[in-house]
Amino acid sequence: MSMTVGGAKATLEAVIIKTEKSIERENAYQKELADDRATLSYIEKLQTDGEPLPAGSPYLSFTEWKEQIEKEIKAGQNSIDRILVEKAELMAFRYFVDNAPEA
């Protein structure tokens, strides 16, 4: 089943809105990633200094805590990488919507 240029443009208009909303979360991901990296540094300092786990910590060991933070860092970085792709897609979508002939 083929799609007309007009149909493709209409579909992409909705995708553009969704993509713009996703890109708006980039700053939040950047802040969260910075916080996670600071937490990882803090954990490593505590561990190096021979400090005990903080009271009330939900983790059983520094290793468990570090592994969790490293997972969060990886997820945050993946989100930022995805946003870079979304920015490129958004440029392409807008170019198509603005320039594709209706013929």
Rank of each mutant, 00 (worst) to 15 (best):
D49G: 00
T48Y: 13
P58H: 05
D49P: 02
T39M: 13
G56R: 07
D35P: 02
P54M: 01
R37V: 02
L33T: 14
P58A: 11
P52E: 14
A55R: 12
S57V: 05
N27V: 09
T39L: 06
E44F: 04
L33N: 13
E32D: 14
Y59V: 01
Q30S: 07
L46Q: 13
Q30N: 12
E64H: 02
F62Y: 15
F62W: 10
Y42W: 15
E51K: 14
N27F: 05
L46P: 04
I43K: 00
Y59T: 03
A38G: 15
K45C: 05
L53E: 13
P54S: 01
E51M: 13
G56T: 07
D36R: 12
A55H: 03
A55G: 04
L40R: 13
S41A: 15
A34L: 08
A55P: 05
Y42C: 03
N27Y: 06
L40G: 08
Q47F: 01
D49K: 10
I43T: 10
F62V: 01
A34K: 14
S41C: 03
E32F: 04
T48G: 08
A28K: 12
S57R: 08
E64Q: 14
K31D: 10
P54N: 10
E32V: 02
E64P: 01
I43M: 05
L53T: 11
D49I: 02
L40H: 09
L53W: 12
N27E: 13
K66T: 06
Q47H: 07
E44R: 15
K45S: 09
P52W: 06
S57H: 07
A55L: 08
Y29Q: 12
P58L: 01
T63E: 12
N27A: 11
Y42M: 14
R25N: 07
P58R: 10
F62T: 03
A28Q: 14
F62A: 02
A34E: 15
F62G: 05
Y59G: 03
A28E: 15
E26C: 02
G50P: 08
T63A: 10
Y42P: 04
E51G: 04
N27L: 04
